[in-house]
Simulated scan of single mutants.
Amino acid sequence: MAYELDEDGISLRDSIVRSPIASVVSDPRLPDNPIIAVNQAFCDLTGYSDDEILGRNCRFLAGPATEPWLTERIRQGTRDRRATLVEILNYKRDGQPFRNAVLVAPVFTPDGELEYFLGSQVELEPDAVGPSSSRHHHAVEVVRTLSPRQREILQQIAAGHRSKQIAYNLSLSEKTVKMHRGLILEKIGTHNVADAIRLAVEAGL
Protein backbone atom coordinates (compact mmCIF):
# COMPACT_ATOMS: atom_id res chain seq x y z
CA MET A 1 0.00 0.00 0.00
CA ALA A 2 1.34 3.43 -0.92
CA TYR A 3 1.51 6.32 1.52
CA GLU A 4 1.71 9.99 0.68
CA LEU A 5 4.73 11.92 1.90
CA ASP A 6 4.56 15.09 3.92
CA GLU A 7 6.62 18.16 3.14
CA ASP A 8 9.71 16.74 4.82
CA GLY A 9 9.55 13.43 2.97
CA ILE A 10 8.30 11.49 6.01
CA SER A 11 5.08 9.55 5.70
CA LEU A 12 2.41 9.85 8.35
CA ARG A 13 2.83 6.12 8.91
CA ASP A 14 6.52 6.59 9.72
CA SER A 15 5.60 9.47 12.02
CA ILE A 16 3.33 7.33 14.19
CA VAL A 17 5.82 4.45 14.21
CA ARG A 18 8.24 6.73 16.05
CA SER A 19 5.59 7.94 18.49
CA PRO A 20 5.40 6.50 22.04
CA ILE A 21 1.66 7.29 21.98
CA ALA A 22 -0.69 4.54 20.76
CA SER A 23 -1.62 5.71 17.26
CA VAL A 24 -3.31 4.65 14.04
CA VAL A 25 -3.91 6.20 10.62
CA SER A 26 -7.18 5.61 8.79
CA ASP A 27 -8.21 6.33 5.21
CA PRO A 28 -11.59 8.11 4.87
CA ARG A 29 -11.44 7.62 1.10
CA LEU A 30 -12.04 3.88 1.60
CA PRO A 31 -15.35 2.32 2.74
CA ASP A 32 -15.87 2.62 6.54
CA ASN A 33 -12.66 4.63 7.06
CA PRO A 34 -10.42 1.59 7.78
CA ILE A 35 -7.13 1.66 9.69
CA ILE A 36 -4.21 1.50 7.25
CA ALA A 37 -1.30 1.94 9.69
CA VAL A 38 -0.77 1.17 13.38
CA ASN A 39 2.17 1.49 15.74
CA GLN A 40 3.50 -0.92 18.34
CA ALA A 41 2.29 1.28 21.20
CA PHE A 42 -1.30 0.76 20.03
CA CYS A 43 -0.80 -3.02 19.90
CA ASP A 44 0.74 -2.96 23.39
CA LEU A 45 -2.14 -0.89 24.79
CA THR A 46 -5.00 -2.90 23.29
CA GLY A 47 -3.52 -6.41 23.14
CA TYR A 48 -4.33 -6.77 19.43
CA SER A 49 -1.73 -7.61 16.78
CA ASP A 50 -1.38 -5.37 13.76
CA ASP A 51 -2.94 -8.08 11.57
CA GLU A 52 -6.05 -7.95 13.76
CA ILE A 53 -6.22 -4.14 13.53
CA LEU A 54 -5.44 -3.23 9.92
CA GLY A 55 -8.49 -2.90 7.72
CA ARG A 56 -10.91 -2.33 10.62
CA ASN A 57 -12.66 0.80 11.82
CA CYS A 58 -11.54 2.02 15.27
CA ARG A 59 -14.98 1.29 16.69
CA PHE A 60 -13.84 -2.31 17.28
CA LEU A 61 -12.55 -1.11 20.66
CA ALA A 62 -16.11 -0.35 21.78
CA GLY A 63 -17.97 -2.73 24.09
CA PRO A 64 -21.10 -3.17 26.22
CA ALA A 65 -20.58 -0.09 28.42
CA THR A 66 -19.04 2.24 25.82
CA GLU A 67 -20.92 5.53 25.96
CA PRO A 68 -22.92 5.92 22.71
CA TRP A 69 -23.07 9.72 23.00
CA LEU A 70 -19.27 9.87 23.06
CA THR A 71 -19.06 7.55 20.08
CA GLU A 72 -21.43 9.91 18.28
CA ARG A 73 -19.23 12.88 19.22
CA ILE A 74 -16.30 11.18 17.48
CA ARG A 75 -18.44 10.45 14.43
CA GLN A 76 -19.61 14.04 14.30
CA GLY A 77 -16.01 15.23 14.47
CA THR A 78 -15.06 13.07 11.50
CA ARG A 79 -18.10 14.29 9.58
CA ASP A 80 -17.12 17.89 10.35
CA ARG A 81 -13.46 17.16 9.59
CA ARG A 82 -12.25 18.61 12.87
CA ALA A 83 -10.08 17.28 15.69
CA THR A 84 -12.07 15.65 18.48
CA LEU A 85 -10.84 14.50 21.90
CA VAL A 86 -13.09 12.41 24.16
CA GLU A 87 -12.59 10.26 27.24
CA ILE A 88 -14.48 7.04 26.53
CA LEU A 89 -14.72 3.51 27.90
CA ASN A 90 -13.05 1.04 25.55
CA TYR A 91 -12.08 -2.61 25.78
CA LYS A 92 -8.82 -4.45 25.28
CA ARG A 93 -8.54 -7.75 23.41
CA ASP A 94 -8.92 -9.74 26.64
CA GLY A 95 -12.16 -7.91 27.46
CA GLN A 96 -10.63 -5.62 30.09
CA PRO A 97 -12.31 -2.20 30.06
CA PHE A 98 -10.16 0.90 30.24
CA ARG A 99 -10.72 4.64 30.25
CA ASN A 100 -9.35 5.93 26.95
CA ALA A 101 -8.56 9.51 25.94
CA VAL A 102 -9.21 9.17 22.21
CA LEU A 103 -8.10 11.80 19.73
CA VAL A 104 -9.28 11.71 16.12
CA ALA A 105 -7.86 14.45 13.90
CA PRO A 106 -8.06 15.06 10.14
CA VAL A 107 -4.99 15.39 7.96
CA PHE A 108 -5.33 17.28 4.69
CA THR A 109 -3.27 17.32 1.50
CA PRO A 110 -1.28 20.47 0.71
CA ASP A 111 -4.20 21.44 -1.53
CA GLY A 112 -6.72 21.17 1.31
CA GLU A 113 -8.32 17.81 0.44
CA LEU A 114 -9.07 15.37 3.28
CA GLU A 115 -6.41 12.65 3.12
CA TYR A 116 -6.28 10.72 6.41
CA PHE A 117 -7.45 10.67 9.99
CA LEU A 118 -4.92 10.36 12.77
CA GLY A 119 -6.19 8.47 15.79
CA SER A 120 -4.33 8.27 19.10
CA GLN A 121 -5.20 6.72 22.44
CA VAL A 122 -3.95 7.25 25.97
CA GLU A 123 -5.07 5.03 28.84
CA LEU A 124 -6.19 7.23 31.72
CA GLU A 125 -5.75 6.72 35.42
CA PRO A 126 -9.05 5.89 37.16
CA ASP A 127 -9.11 9.29 38.90
CA ALA A 128 -8.33 11.35 35.78
CA VAL A 129 -11.25 13.67 35.06
CA GLY A 130 -11.57 15.65 31.82
CA PRO A 131 -9.81 19.00 31.68
CA SER A 132 -8.35 18.56 35.16
CA SER A 133 -6.22 15.62 34.01
CA SER A 134 -2.46 15.93 34.30
CA ARG A 135 -2.04 15.55 30.53
CA HIS A 136 -4.16 18.64 29.92
CA HIS A 137 -2.21 20.71 32.43
CA HIS A 138 1.11 19.53 31.00
CA ALA A 139 -0.01 20.36 27.45
CA VAL A 140 -1.13 23.85 28.49
CA GLU A 141 2.21 24.53 30.18
CA VAL A 142 4.15 23.38 27.10
CA VAL A 143 2.04 25.52 24.76
CA ARG A 144 2.69 28.54 27.00
CA THR A 145 6.39 28.28 26.13
CA LEU A 146 5.61 28.96 22.47
CA SER A 147 5.52 32.40 20.90
CA PRO A 148 2.14 33.73 19.71
CA ARG A 149 3.10 32.98 16.09
CA GLN A 150 4.17 29.45 17.01
CA ARG A 151 0.87 28.87 18.80
CA GLU A 152 -0.96 30.01 15.66
CA ILE A 153 1.02 27.57 13.54
CA LEU A 154 0.56 24.72 16.03
CA GLN A 155 -3.17 25.37 15.96
CA GLN A 156 -3.09 25.10 12.17
CA ILE A 157 -1.09 21.87 12.38
CA ALA A 158 -3.65 20.45 14.82
CA ALA A 159 -6.37 21.30 12.31
CA GLY A 160 -4.63 18.99 9.86
CA HIS A 161 -3.09 21.57 7.54
CA ARG A 162 0.26 21.18 5.79
CA SER A 163 2.84 23.94 5.46
CA LYS A 164 1.52 25.19 2.11
CA GLN A 165 -1.99 25.69 3.47
CA ILE A 166 -0.73 27.17 6.76
CA ALA A 167 1.36 29.69 4.84
CA TYR A 168 -1.70 30.71 2.85
CA ASN A 169 -3.97 30.90 5.92
CA LEU A 170 -1.52 33.04 7.91
CA SER A 171 -0.09 35.08 5.00
CA LEU A 172 3.41 33.74 5.60
CA SER A 173 6.02 32.12 3.38
CA GLU A 174 6.32 28.33 3.45
CA LYS A 175 9.93 28.77 4.53
CA THR A 176 8.81 30.76 7.59
CA VAL A 177 6.16 28.16 8.46
CA LYS A 178 8.67 25.31 8.20
CA MET A 179 11.17 27.21 10.35
CA HIS A 180 8.57 27.74 13.07
CA ARG A 181 7.38 24.14 12.69
CA GLY A 182 10.88 22.87 13.46
CA LEU A 183 11.15 25.17 16.49
CA ILE A 184 7.74 24.02 17.74
CA LEU A 185 8.69 20.34 17.56
CA GLU A 186 11.96 21.10 19.35
CA LYS A 187 10.23 23.06 22.12
CA ILE A 188 7.58 20.43 22.78
CA GLY A 189 10.17 17.66 22.77
CA THR A 190 9.11 15.55 19.79
CA HIS A 191 10.28 14.83 16.28
CA ASN A 192 6.95 14.06 14.68
CA VAL A 193 3.77 15.90 13.82
CA ALA A 194 1.48 13.17 15.20
CA ASP A 195 2.59 13.93 18.77
CA ALA A 196 2.36 17.68 18.16
CA ILE A 197 -1.26 17.33 17.04
CA ARG A 198 -2.08 15.34 20.16
CA LEU A 199 -0.48 17.89 22.47
CA ALA A 200 -2.20 20.81 20.76
CA VAL A 201 -5.65 19.27 21.11
CA GLU A 202 -5.00 18.25 24.71
CA ALA A 203 -4.10 21.90 25.41
CA GLY A 204 -7.39 23.03 23.92
CA LEU A 205 -5.99 24.81 20.86
Results as ranks from 00 to 15, higher is better:
D111I: 05
D111G: 14
D111Y: 10
D111L: 09
D111P: 05
D111S: 15
G112C: 06
G112L: 03
G112W: 02
G112Q: 06
E113D: 15
E115K: 10
Y116F: 09
Y116W: 13
F117E: 05
F117R: 03
F117P: 09
L118R: 00
L118S: 01
L118W: 03
G119V: 00
G119A: 06
S120V: 04
S120N: 13
Q121A: 05
Q121S: 11
Q121C: 05
V122I: 15
V122E: 12
V122L: 10
V122G: 03
V122W: 04
E123N: 01
E123C: 00
E123G: 00
L124D: 01
L124P: 01
L124I: 00
L124S: 00
E125D: 09
E125N: 06
E125M: 07
P126F: 04
P126W: 04
P126C: 06
D127M: 09
D127Q: 07
A128E: 08
A128V: 01
V129A: 06
V129C: 08
G130D: 10
G130K: 12
P131S: 12
P131W: 11
P131C: 15
P131K: 11
P131D: 15
S132G: 15
S132Q: 15
S132H: 11
S133D: 12
S133H: 05
S133M: 03
S133E: 02
S134W: 11
S134K: 13
S134Y: 12
R135Q: 09
R135D: 12
H136I: 07
H136R: 14
H137S: 11
H137Q: 15
H137K: 13
H137M: 14
H137C: 14
A139Y: 05
V140D: 02
V140W: 02
V140F: 05
E141Y: 15
V142L: 10
V142N: 04
V142G: 02
V143P: 06
V143N: 01
V143R: 07
R144Y: 07
R144P: 10
R144C: 11
T145Y: 01
T145C: 01
T145G: 11
T145P: 00
